[in-house]
Design a protein around this nucleic acid. Structure first.
Lengths: 335, 335
DNA sequence: ATTAAAAATTAACGCGCGTAAAGAAAAATC
DNA sequence: GATTTTTCTTTACGCGCGTTAATTTTTAAT
């Protein structure tokens, strides 16, 4: 920067000021800098910049696993929302490992992030580390809630969305059984189970819950193996299954195909399968999956908006905010 | 670090040495530092560390789009291979935007990456920027090749893999048509088309190529729309279609389902569909997709190994290396 | 106990930039 | 033209650490 300032004929502090905000220097000097920029293609070291800044423009975005298309989709929207507001998002995936969530927060500490948007693991998260981070940085949670952590949470209203699906399934055929992981890592899974039970009781139906054994992130495989087991044992008392999320449903769909079960609502179909989340692949399954779409756009925008509001007012929220958006029923052919 | 060194009773340079390599200090001082670490939970700022190091342990990994499960899968393996070798991978996705590929390389410049593994866009990449980067950093390309860029390339032997598939399809039924994007961004697509044509001619068959209109990364949607169009127009002269990649095949499978075409090789099936890449979802499609598995593991390990070899010898390769691994035929039910 | 080798300490500089203060220069106002 | 305001320049320090060189201390070897 020293050298670049010399060749452009401007002092280094002014050049520094320019890179911080090009509009903050006189138009004539701005032109000289930009002319020199054309010729010598210099660009400042972003990490050295943030080393010493009071407030950076870096926003940390941490998700549990980018290999899950659900998270890559919502992360993409969050990133775009940040960029639109003039901030630089830094996307970090924890690759399914809670210890890496901690590492990622440490990185964001080093980077002096202005604020962080975190989709935590939930039960598996190292909550002490997150709490410590929360104390020092503006933190907004999304997707998965954790009590008393973060100044705000933005997510989907699982009881509304599951009720919507249960209502639809009851109205259009036999009431649904519920298929989920036995040891879900994500707190939404618990909310959905509870919502299913309550909704079924409201409809005067008996809830039936089926839990898949298995650990890890290989949900489709678990859905196929365990779902296939329940199907072949004829374990479901009704012909309708609501899966806790689309990835399980995709696996179950695959199992049903393998067993020769026709899936759908038409005549000649043996079973109806529904999911939750509107996973990017759900529209391409055979048959296309009936599911609940989370309002990715609204969740991303609200999470980002809430964080930026905090950044601008420069004070912590007096009270923790929780915002839940409604899910939308996506009727396709599987149920 | 100053403070931490004070409370641990060790000088700062020694503490610095410890963090650089815990084994490089005397066991007794190591114990004292680690005891202090327990109590005061300090951790060095990774970005400040790299600011001034001769050789960092940072390896940049740049992929065009992490939202594509193919890339998230191979990136995962590359990351693990780096970690196993004691380096810190920094994974950057260009989100489908070639200009962001350039930005990502600039970030890695700032970070003083010891070396970079890059899966370039190919035709759309800003090759001047990559060349400039290549001149200053050890660079290994994987997945997609670009002539004269990078000191090495590691990928799949498309002519072998496509030939393997064509041979299988010809042997087990009618010879395949080829379905691809009209304007593929990835150089592998062109290699596969050429390989298909040559292989068909070797088998004494006439090649038939069908190209899908459409831009962007929404391959499944394009595969469904355009594949569905060809199917419903009865455009394919044989009952077998080889898709240039699995994502197109997944879309086409969905179209076939919608049109009531039974896919597979058994009696009563109308069409066979095959793909290429063994996409993580391919085993869950209905029917499961017959495809070519790239040897992710070998590609990742060789790419990482080649780069680390360069890092240790501290000199550029005298000649550009190209390593191609063979694809493996994965026979499932779709063809 | 003596000596050589290994490890730690002290002191100082550098990385690439942000930032603050004081003064000089340029632009805007009258 | 004189005055005020804005913008630059100069100078200097700091961020959090790596790294070096000279010196001292500790450990291992004789």
């Amino acid at each position: 920067m020293e050298e670049f300032a010399a060749v452009s004929g401007i002092s280094r502090p002014t050049v520094s000021k320019y890179f911080n905000d090009p509009g903050s220097v006189r138009p004539s000097t701005r032109k000289r800098i930009e002319a020199a920029l054309e010729e010598y293609d210099y660009s400042p070291n972003v990490f050295a910049m943030n080393q010493n800044r009071r407030k950076t423009k870096n926003i940390g975005v941490v998700v549990p696993n980018l290999a899950d298309p659900f998270f890559s989709e919502i992360a993409r929207r969050v990133e775009l929302a940040c960029i639109d507001s003039g901030y630089s998002p830094i996307l970090l995936s924890s690759h399914g490992r809670p210890d890496m969530e901690k590492t990622n927060l440490a990185s964001l500490r080093s980077l002096k992030a202005a604020g962080v948007l975190l989709a935590p693991f939930g039960r598996l998260s190292e909550s002490e580390a997150i709490k410590a981070f929360d104390a020092d940085f503006p933190l907004v949670l999304f997707d998965a809630n954790m009590s008393d952590i973060g100044q705000a949470f933005v997510g989907t209203n699982n009881s509304q969305s599951v009720d919507l699906m249960v209502e639809y399934l009851c109205r259009s055929g036999e009431p649904p059984c519920f298929f989920e992981m036995k040891y879900p890592t994500n707190p939404n899974a618990n909310k959905r189970r509870t919502a299913y039970i309550e909704s079924m009781e409201r409809h005067g139906q008996k809830p039936h819950i089926f839990q898949a054994d298995g650990e890890g992130w290989n949900f489709e495989e678990i859905g196929r193996y365990e779902g296939g087991r329940f199907l072949s044992e004829n374990a479901f008392p009704t012909n309708t299954v609501l899966c806790s999320n689309d990835r399980l449903a995709i696996g179950m769909l695959s199992a049903a195909y393998g067993l020769g079960f026709r899936v759908g609502q038409g005549a000649g179909c043996h079973i109806r399968i529904a999911g939750h989340d509107d996973h990017p692949f759900s529209r391409f399954t055979c048959p296309p999956l009936t599911t609940i779409a989370q309002d990715y756009e609204a969740i991303a925008n609200r999470a980002v908006g809430t964080l930026f509001g905090m950044l601008e007012s420069e004070e912590r929220l007096t009270q923790r905010q929780e915002t839940l958006f409604e899910g939308r029923l996506i009727m396709r052919d599987s149920a």
